[in-house]
Structure formats: structure tokens, C-alpha cells
């Protein structure tokens, strides 16, 4: 077990280094954006003197590396600074948005991951039957359509035609959990459809691959039922690739939902990011970017650790 903790420590160190590198990239990227915040906010009528004074106030006149380190230092202390656009502390702004994004991601994951794994196992169990083909074709078509298209089709059918769910998923703290869930039904469904195919196909492929192993033949010759062979003999040995693809999809649910959030006007981090870019609200953009990076690094770390715990051989040896 000691070895696992030392391995985790090593991975965390690497993850931290990754985040630092990403922070540099984010900073440089944002620097490279055309235009100037002060001019953008003050408008074209502003005199050069007022622009200059405003830049000074925002510390935009300092050299980039000074700004980078002071930004990073603040970030590590949990202080993301103030929004340039409206002067409010970013921590509060992002905090609420992030919790909304995580809520949407978690709700989707709760539905999509078990469903995808179940479908993958069933497809492996009934390999090359009409069921297998149906699942493969439908999940594949869902993943090949652009997200916004899936979203609009769902709105057209479930919201406009049948009136089951709202097409705009605005949620607020006053709403009860049930109301919230009702509100996010459509984005949740869209994301489920989009992420289902990856996990399901990976589950199916790995399980089918494991089914060729001698220990599966042995289980068959022991007279074990096919369903039990898949669940008890094949699945535990297929876990590591499945965990990886699940975690990558979780990361996508947090980080990649920008389009879906915009379509459904959902108050999540993705939408905030888009708004802030158009408003040139640099600190918000940087903070969201870094939060996305941390999410990715953390989830990948989680995948590694879970893959090791799932494998008795690695559990005792590494």
C-alpha cells in the first residue's frame, strides 16, 4: 500500500508540473489576444490619457512576467482577483458557475456511465445479434452528430412539440433539487447521448477481447452462465481501459460542455468563459482555463489510481 501512496505522490507532482506549464500557456495565449481591455471598456471616445490611467489602475502597464507571477501566486492562495468587467471578485463568480457545471456533469455521469457500461456488456453478451448492431449504430450516430444539432433536435421534439422539458435551463439556488433536475433534463440528455458511444464501445471491445482469454474458456468449461462470465470473469479484467475512457468522458463533461451550455443558456462555467472572452475579461478567462486544466489533471490521476486498485497484480507489486 505504501507503494501506491508513493506512486500517487509522484503522479501528483507530475500533475502539478503540468498545471504550471498550462498556466504559462494560458497566460501567453490570453496575452496574444488582439485588442486592449481598457480601450474595449472605455469605448472609442476615451482620450488616450484616461485609457492610460485606467490601464495603470488595472496594472496592465506592468511587464508580463511580473503580472504572471503575481497572478499565479494569487491563484495558489485561492484569490482569483476581480473581474475586470464588473469589478466583482472572481472567486464568487466562478464558484457558483463551477458548482452548476459540476452539477450538470455529475447528473449526466450518473446516468451515462452505468448505462454505457451496461449497454457495452449487453452488446458483448449478444455479440453480432440485432441488439448489438442496434446499440452500435444508434450510439455511433449520436456521437457523430454535432452536439448543438442533437441539442436542437431534442428541443424541437421534447420541448416545442411535447412540452415536456424547458428549452432554457436556467437554474437558481432557490429551486428544489427536483426542479433543478427537471430544468437540466435536456442538456443532460444531450450530453448523455454524446458521451454514451465512447464508453459503450470501449466496454464492448475490451470485454470481447478479454473473452478470448484462456481463463474465460476455463469458466465456460466450469459450466458458468454466460452472463456471469461477462460480469464476474471478463469485466474485472477489462476495467483498466474502461476506467480510462470513463474518466476522459467525465473530463469532457466538465470541460467540453461549452456549446451545450450556450445552447441551453445554462449558467455554467463554459458559458461564463464564452462571455468573458467576448468581454475581454482576462482574469476570468485565465481562472476558468486553469480550473479546467486542474479538472483534467485530477481526473487523469484518478484514472491511474483506480486502474491500479482494480488490478490485483499491480495492487501488490508496484
Amino acid at each position: 500500500m505504501n507503494n501506491i501512496s508513493s506512486m500517487i505522490a509522484k503522479r501528483m507532482g507530475l500533475g502539478f508540473a503540468t498545471i504550471i506549464v498550462i498556466s504559462v500557456l494560458i497566460f501567453l495565449g490570453v496575452e496574444a489576444l488582439p485588442g486592449d481591455l481598457a480601450e474595449a471598456i472605455l469605448g472609442q471616445q476615451a482620450t488616450p490619457e484616461t485609457v492610460e490611467a485606467f490601464r495603470k489602475e488595472l496594472k496592465l502597464d506592468l511587464p508580463p512576467h511580473v503580472r504572471y507571477f503575481s497572478w499565479l501566486g494569487d491563484f495558489l492562495r485561492g484569490d482569483f482577483g476581480n473581474s475586470l468587467a464588473n469589478g466583482r471578485p472572481i472567486t464568487g463568480l466562478i464558484g457558483w458557475r463551477l458548482s452548476n457545471t459540476l452539477f450538470l456533469a455529475a447528473s449526466t455521469a450518473v446516468v451515462a456511465v452505468p448505462l454505457a457500461i451496461l449497454l457495452g456488456m449487453l452488446a458483448a453478451l449478444y455479440r453480432d445479434t440485432w441488439f448489438d448492431r442496434l446499440v452500435s449504430v444508434s450510439t455511433l450516430s449520436a456521437v457523430s452528430l454535432p452536439e448543438f444539432f442533437v441539442a436542437y433536435v431534442l428541443i424541437a421534439v421534447l420541448s416545442v412539440r411535447l412540452g415536456l422539458f424547458p428549452s432554457i435551463s436556467s437554474i437558481s439556488d432557490e429551486m428544489s433539487l427536483g426542479e433543478k433536475i427537471h430544468g437540466i433534463m435536456l442538456p443532460c440528455l444531450t450530453l448523455t447521448l454524446v458521451s454514451l458511444a465512447h464508453i459503450m464501445r470501449m466496454t464492448r471491445a475490451t470485454i470481447i477481447n478479454v473473452l478470448n482469454s484462456p481463463f474465460i474458456e476455463m469458466a465456460r468449461l466450469k459450466g458458468i452462465r454466460q452472463s456471469r462470465i461477462i460480469i464476474r470473469h471478463a469485466f474485472p479484467n477489462a476495467l483498466s481501459p474502461i476506467i480510462n475512457v470513463v474518466v476522459l468522458n467525465l473530463a469532457y463533461l466538465v470541460v467540453g460542455v461549452v456549446v451545450v451550455e450556450v445552447v441551453f443558456v445554462y449558467p455554467g462555467l463554459g458559458q461564463l468563459l464564452v462571455d468573458s472572452v467576448s468581454k475581454r475579461d482576462i482574469p476570468v478567462v485565465q481562472a476558468s482555463g486553469l480550473i479546467f486544466a486542474c479538472t483534467y489533471v485530477f481526473l487523469n490521476l484518478l484514472a491511474d489510481v483506480l486502474a491500479i486498485i482494480a488490478n490485483p497484480r499491480l495492487r501488490s507489486e508496484t
Binding site: S213, P214, F215, E217, M218, A219, L221, K222, G223, I224, H233, P236, N237, N311, P312, R313
Partner: peptide, 18 residues
């Protein structure tokens, strides 16, 4: 398994590692 049992050449491969 119950009435006719099988013993494979390589136990290392025939036992489920998990």
C-alpha cells in the same frame, strides 16, 4: 464443471487473474 471437469495446460492462463 459439475460432472465433467477440465484441467488446462497452463494454470497461469486458466485462472482468472482478478
Amino acid at each position: 464443471g459439475a460432472h465433467i471437469a477440465y484441467m488446462a495446460q497452463s494454470a497461469a492462463a486458466a485462472f482468472n487473474p482478478a
